[in-house]
């Protein structure tokens, strides 16, 4: 048997095993999590690897999807129990009649040094500050995401509005090439793309702003777990177990740099060099979420015209004590 045939057979067996795995898990509580591949989700992937979910009596199924709205869709359609995204998709969902609530915050930003999102201009664009973006082509990854809020907030602070620039929606991975080729002048980005841009000499990245909001004197939630109202009402215990597993994995990853880097290499497919500059966006030790945490985001959305108020943060949160 040639080595190729053997590999093909190996692949077939693996596919068969994968297929049968769906039918397994009788006594454990199933919890299906739809997520976008981002940094603060890493502890969940790590916990899955280490078997922490199983130890807690949970059978976790992690489903990667491409966008924040898709995670909401997965939760609402019943394909997933829990969603992981930036807070804006579940907020937008609830504003449009989709009954979901956030219950754990997985990442935060705070000034001055714990910020994880940047606005960057190319040297060729000649832009040196936020005011310079007027009339220019600016990129962000999706409408109704944290990056849109970031642009709006920082533009407002510079005396401009989103109508003074030409927005181009472009997925994160394509932004660096678009900047370098002059298709956009400035963009909102995250790691590992930011690190890649700053090390690109030809691009000559100029950092214009960092942090989702201009005012980051208090920690601002950047990622959250959310679920439908119905699921939260019926599965309080599972939510607590989920929080405990996440807590354990987060603590281990924060304490052990080598494991963190290895996990980033494994799941985000970072190169080992890129993983060296990788950090979990964690400011608060606790993942508990309060109405105030959401209210700050809502207020910023209203102030910058992303939505109309008044809105009450408490309606978007289900507090989970773990």
């Amino acid at each position: 048997m040639s080595s190729f045939t053997r590999r093909v057979l190996g692949g077939l067996t693996a596919a068969a095993v994968l297929g049968s795995a769906f039918g397994a898990s009788a006594q454990e509580t199933p919890v299906r999590i739809a997520y976008i591949l981002a940094d603060s989700m890493l502890p969940a992937l790590y916990a899955q690897d280490e078997g922490y979910f199983t130890e807690a009596g949970l059978a976790a199924d992690l489903i990667a999807v491409q966008s924040g709205p898709a995670t909401v869709a997965a939760v609402v359609s019943g394909e997933a129990d829990v969603g992981y995204a930036a807070p804006i998709p579940p907020i937008n969902g609830r504003l449009n009649g989709v009954p979901v609530k956030m219950f754990l915050q997985l990442g935060q930003e705070v000034a001055p040094d714990k910020t994880y999102v940047w606005i960057v201009a190319s040297r060729a664009s000649g832009i040196t500050d936020m005011a310079g973006t007027e009339g220019k082509k600016i990129g962000f990854n999706a409408n109704g995401g944290l990056c849109e809020l970031m642009w709006r907030d920082h533009l407002t602070a510079a005396g401009l509005s989103i109508d003074d620039v030409q927005p181009v929606v472009l997925p994160f991975p394509e932004q660096e090439a678009a900047l370098q080729q002059g298709n956009i002048d400035a963009t909102c980005t995250v790691n590992p793309f930011y690190a890649s841009m700053t090390s690109n000499a030809e691009l000559g990245a100029v950092m214009l702003a960092t942090g989702t909001l201009v005012d980051l004197s208090q920690p601002l939630m950047s990622d959250a777990f959310f679920a439908s109202d119905g699921w939260l009402a019926a599965n309080g215990e599972t939510a607590v177990k989920l929080a405990q597993v996440m807590d354990r994995a987060r603590k281990e990853l924060l304490a052990d740099r080598a494991t963190l880097e290895a996990t980033a290499v494994k799941y985000m497919e970072l190169t080992p060099e890129a993983a060296k500059s990788f950090n979990l966006p964690i400011v608060n030790d606790s993942m508990t979420m309060t109405a105030d945490d959401v209210q700050r985001i809502l207020d910023a959305m209203i102030k910058t015209g992303m939505t109309t108020g008044p809105l009450n943060g408490a309606e978007f949160v289900a507090e989970v004590e773990y």
């Binding site: 992690l62 990667a64 999807v65 991975p173 590992p192 985000m268």
Partner: peptide, 19 residues
């Protein structure tokens, strides 16, 4: 690519995000 756990589409998506 849009909703994946496996397959070539998901793999492309992951590789794109890893640059």
């Amino acid at each position: 690519m849009l909703a994946g756990r496996d397959g070539i589409g998901f793999m492309i998506y992951k590789k794109v995000y890893a640059m």
